[in-house]
Each structure stands twice: as C-alpha cells, then as structure tokens.
Write a protein that binds this DNA or RNA. Sequence first.
DNA 1: TATTGTTATACTCTATAACTATA
DNA 2: TATAGTTATAGAGTATAACAATA
Lengths: 144, 144
Amino acid sequence: MTMRAFSRSLPMALMRARESVMAEFRPILAAHDITEQQWRVLRALVDAPGGVGIGDLAASTVLMGPSVSRILVALEGRGLIRRSPVDHDGRRSIVAATPAGFELYESISPASEDAYHRVEERFGAADLDQLHALLDRLSTVLAD
Amino acid sequence: MTMRAFSRSLPMALMRARESVMAEFRPILAAHDITEQQWRVLRALVDAPGGVGIGDLAASTVLMGPSVSRILVALEGRGLIRRSPVDHDGRRSIVAATPAGFELYESISPASEDAYHRVEERFGAADLDQLHALLDRLSTVLAD
DNA sequence: TATTGTTATACTCTATAACTATA
DNA sequence: TATAGTTATAGAGTATAACAATA
C-alpha cells in the first residue's frame, strides 16, 4: 500500500488553502479590530436580520457554545449586537445585529468583497464555483 | 452589487470542509494523545527522513515559529524527535523523527488511511482528485 | 548588521465540566 | 429530567516583540 505524501493530506490542503485566502482578509479585519471568529458571528447575524438563537449561531459559525458566549459579550460591549428574550421560553434568547453592527459590517464589507474578487480574478470564476460546489458537497456527505 | 450570502464565504466553506474531514481524524489522534499540530509536525518529519530545518518545518506545517519551538519541546520530551546541529552554522539545527517517532507514526497511520478512504468512498475518488487539484492551485496562485 | 531559533507576553479559541434558570 | 445558555478551567496556538547566539 503506497503511502500518501504529506502534501496529499486533505486536511492540510484545506488548511493551506484557507490560510492563503485568509491572508487576503486578515489585514481588513485587523484594521477594524475584529477577530475572525467575531467576524463570522457578525456576518451570520447580518445574514439573518430577524435574529438567531445562540445554539443555531454556534452551529452556523462552527464555534463552540462557550466561545460564542464570550464573543457575544465582546460584541455586546461594543454595541454591535443585542439580545432579546424569547416569548414563552425564558431559557432562550435571540441575538441580532444592532444598527452599529450593520454599520461595522458595511464598513468592512467592501474591502472584503474586493479581496474576494481578487481571489476570483486570480483563480478563475468558473474554478471558484466548482471549488465551492465540491467543498459544500464534501461537508454534506461527511455530515452525520 | 449583490451581496454574497454568508454560506458563499470561501474561508467559511474551507473551514467547514476541514471540520468535516477532521471529525474523521480527530478521534484517532486523541487516542494517541497527540494534537493536530503535533501530528502535522510528525508527518512532515516522517516525510523528510533526512531531517528538516526548523524554519522550513514551520513553513511546511503552516505553524508559527514559537509554536513549532514548543511543539518540538513536547515531542522531544516523548522521545519522538531529535535535533542535530548543522555543520558550519551553529544557529541552525536539523530536526528528524526518532525510531520511536516513526513507530508512533506507523501506529497511527493505518487508522488515518482508513479514515481517508472512507472519505474517498463517500465523496468519490475522481471528485477528491479534482478537489485536491483545485486546492493546490488556489494556494499556489495566492502565494506571493 | 542580519539571521536562526528560543523565550516572554497577552490574547483568543478549544474542549469539557459544572452550574443556573427554565421547561 | 432535559434543555439553553453561561461560567470555570485547563490546555494549546496565534501573533508580536525581545532576546541570545552565531554568521
């Protein structure tokens, strides 16, 4: 049985690719004093203007519950998000971006879009579509 | 200009895919009491039996220098790697896996190969090849 | 002076468990 | 009892700067 070379490691390939892409995005986030994980949360909230439950938020951002809790405290402290109680269930709460949160998102978004387009330009739009499709399917078939 | 949906984020897609794949590998590493990053280092060393410089090791494993330093201390403490001085340059050292390091690698490797084959089976060998090709090219075109 | 590698520091996230409040 | 979310804790990595040794 032939051993796969180190470079054929799928997790490594995915990580290297992610690192390469994030190198384009990281300076933008750093300039706005927001971590990658905080940005993931903010994006998820902007994408769901009606608000999201905290458990769902953790799942959609691929973050642990405790991490989400701490991130929400930080974002709340900056006035970027707010929590609302849920009727008939005092355990839950719904999180949503505040106007300031949307504003921060909008101020970061153009540079982020530019970075994405630079990637698209260098890599090719068709290949990028194909890559997205493959990645989504990989995540889907491996999900239990 | 249409906003890309949250789910179209390339870094997110790469991370989700990596998470899905790592879910297959993580229990194997945990069972051998080795972290993901330690495993990356060990694999890199097994892949380069002649040894590698520490700077090159950091680059090839996508780890920071200080992280590599600490990981090497840990692996050295378990007798899995050794350092050798480099002739004519007292600043450098070469790191290589010890027999115990190769042995640990060999004891983990079969389960790791199995996991990879399970992924291949569910995802399709041809698509996996194509994914690898796209990921490698993405990393290449974005490398400065 | 520049380079290789280690050490120091502050911050963040992971991962698990314990805990609180509610259902 | 089970669930949603927070808090506590231990461990590891990120990122940068400072440092020692050597070139």
